[in-house]
Every structure is written in C-alpha cells, then in structure tokens.
Amino acid sequence: MIITRVGIAGLACVGGLLTGQAAMAETVAGTAAGTVAGRSARACLAPDQVGSYLSKEGEATISFSAAFLNGLRQAGVDMQALPPHKMIGNGSGTWLPIGDRYDNIEVPSGRVCYPGGWRWTQSATGASYEIDDFWILFSAVGTSKVIANPKVNGRPRDGGELTLLNFSVPQAFLTGQFVPHNGGIGPKRVDLRMTDDIVRDLNTVFGTTFRGGTVLGGLDIAWKGVPSRPLPSGTSLGFVGLQLLADAIRLPLFPASS
C-alpha cells in the first residue's frame, strides 16, 4: 500500500504538488501545443557543453515487454542500441546514462533532449527504422510524450516528427514507485505505450502487427546528484512537469530501497 511506503505526510506533499501543477498545466496547454511540431532533430549538446537537466548524473533502463519482443522476432527484425544506449539482458532491454553531460532541457518548450536511441533492421528485406536522439515532454497531468524524428531506410521519415510513446508521470507517484534506488531517486517502473503513429510506421516498414497502446516496456529512472546548472524556468507544459519532478527529487519523503 502507498500509505505504508511513503507515509501520510508524503502523500499529502505529493498530492499537493500534483494538484497545484495540474491547475497550472491546464492554463498553458495551448501554449505548449505549438512548440513541438516541426522541430528538427539535432545533437543534444556540443562536445564541451554542460546541459540544463534534472540531475548531474544517473541512469535509466527500459525493459522491453514480451509483446514487443515477440512482435519483432516474428517479423525477423533485429534491434541495435545507438550510443550512449547499450543493449542489456541478451536484448531484453536497454540502459543509458543520464545527466547534464548528456541531456538538455530546451527553452521555451521544456522538452528534454536525450541522445542516442535504437535501430531496427529486417535482414530479409533490408528495411530499417532508426531513432537517433529523442525528446521527452514530462507532463504533470495527463499524457507525457516521447518524441523523435525517425529515419526510414536511412532517409528522414515522410511527415517528420512524431510521438513514439506515451506515459504517465502521476503513475510513478500514485503507485508508490518513486523511490530511492540505484544510487539515486526516481520511478522504478513507468509503462511506455506505443502510439498509433509509431505502430503504423513499424507495421508498414516491417509487416509487424503491433497495436496502438501496446506496452513497449517499463522505464526505470534514477536521478543522482545536484545538477551543475540551475533548472531553467518557463511556463510551458513541459516546464510544469519538470518542476514537479525537480521538487519530488529533492523531497525527503521516500524510504531507502535497493
């Protein structure tokens, strides 16, 4: 039960954060809508640049679902991780370092740029689908988004940018998953669900039979250390979500966990 894990005081604080941020998010949702479409992909940071991010360092893991892995296998599709991502568990997941050496918060959208990604290839046809660099828009309420500019068979995707995955920030708090672990603090599991757009792309390119809403996998994030630069400020939907997370990372509400 959540009450036994974080305590009544912890629930009250987190609930207050969610309620207050929700009201603000509703007022700025229209502003954020115009900041996402049409943005071109780029490297997150220059070689000597320190990014603006939620933590100095940390790590994240995606454990792929059986439905996603089986769908790839049935279509004869192989997956590779693009640096700094690394495949783990004999291909059952990917690991990536996070922190202000890698990631950067964009202004004014509040989207967070993460370098690297994945390449899927089908040996029988030579077809490929690649995501190299992606953005996350953390939303305090409603749906958060993972966004990218994929390449299809080595060329930019027709239609450009799309939302790959959806997930819920409140899910991490309300299920008691936001706890210290892996030397940092963050959600131990948040479900990443495939959108209709990415499903349509993969099914067209590879002949897979994925459906929108299928869980691609579970995301585990551990933010660690005070960031090198202050968190930038903004009023967009992305910044509302980032402020919620920044506050939660610094609240001593949660018991130690392995």
Rank of each mutant, 00 (worst) to 15 (best):
F167I: 09
V146Q: 04
G234R: 13
G160H: 08
G212P: 00
S233I: 11
F173Y: 12
I198N: 03
V190Y: 01
P230D: 11
V169A: 09
K145D: 02
S228H: 11
G159C: 08
S168M: 05
P187Q: 11
K145F: 05
D191C: 12
P230W: 12
L219I: 06
F254N: 06
F178V: 11
P150D: 07
F167G: 01
V179D: 00
P170V: 06
Q243L: 14
S228W: 03
D191N: 14
L165K: 09
T209V: 11
A172Y: 05
R193E: 04
T175V: 05
L162Y: 08
T175L: 05
G217Q: 04
P227N: 10
I147F: 12
F173K: 07
V190P: 00
V199G: 02
G234T: 10
L242K: 05
P150V: 07
L216Q: 04
L237N: 02
T235R: 15
A148S: 11
G213A: 09
R193S: 13
P170H: 07
V146G: 02
R229N: 08
I198K: 10
I249F: 07
V226N: 14
G241K: 04
P187S: 15
G225E: 02
D247S: 15
A172W: 03
I185W: 03
R229M: 08
W223L: 09
G159E: 04
H181P: 01
S228G: 14
K188A: 09
P180S: 08
K151I: 03
L245D: 01
G213F: 11
Q171M: 07
W223D: 00
L231N: 05
A172D: 03
K145P: 00
T163N: 05
F210Q: 02
V190I: 15
D191S: 15
I249D: 00
L202I: 14
T163M: 09
W223F: 15
I221W: 03
G184E: 10
V152C: 06
T209R: 15
G217P: 02
T195S: 07
F178H: 04
V152S: 10
G241H: 04
N149A: 08
L231G: 06
L251N: 10
L237W: 02
G238S: 09
V152M: 10
T175S: 13
R193C: 07
F239T: 06
G238V: 11
L231A: 12
V215N: 03
P227M: 09
P156Y: 10
K151W: 02
D247L: 15
M194Y: 01
V226P: 01
V169S: 05
R211G: 12
W223P: 00
R250C: 10
G154K: 06
P232I: 15
P232G: 14
T204E: 12
R250Y: 04
T195I: 08
G234K: 14
D196W: 10
R157V: 04
K188D: 03
P180D: 05
S233K: 13
E161V: 12
F206G: 04
R189I: 09
W223Y: 15
V205F: 10
R155F: 06
T235S: 15
G154F: 06
A248Y: 06
L244D: 00
T163G: 08
T209Y: 13
